[in-house]
Amino acid sequence: MKNKLIPIYREKEIYTLFFDDKNNKLYKFPHREKSSLIYILLFFVVLYGSQFINQIYQPYKGVLLNITLFAIANGVCFFIAKFVYSHYYIQKTDENIFLNQESMKKYATEGENQYRLEVNLGGGISLVMFVIGSVLFFIFQQMELLIIGSLGSVPLFIILINRPLSRLKILRGFQNKNIHL
Rank of each mutant, 00 (worst) to 15 (best):
G123N: 07
L156G: 09
V84N: 12
A81Y: 12
E118P: 13
L5S: 08
S86T: 13
N3A: 14
N100L: 10
I147K: 05
P164K: 03
H180V: 15
G149M: 05
S134G: 03
Y89C: 11
L156F: 08
L160R: 15
Y39C: 00
R32T: 06
I161P: 11
I90N: 10
K34V: 11
E110I: 11
F138V: 05
F130H: 01
M143T: 04
M1G: 10
N54V: 00
E144A: 05
F43A: 05
L26I: 10
Y9I: 01
I38E: 04
M143S: 02
N162T: 09
D21A: 14
M104A: 10
I72S: 08
Y57N: 04
I125T: 04
Q142G: 05
S134T: 10
E33F: 07
F19L: 13
N66E: 09
I53L: 06
I179F: 02
Q101G: 11
N176M: 13
Q55F: 00
I38R: 08
F83P: 05
G152I: 00
D20Y: 02
P164M: 03
L168D: 06
P30K: 09
F174W: 14
I132V: 07
S36Y: 11
E110T: 11
Q141K: 06
G75S: 13
G62K: 04
R167Y: 11
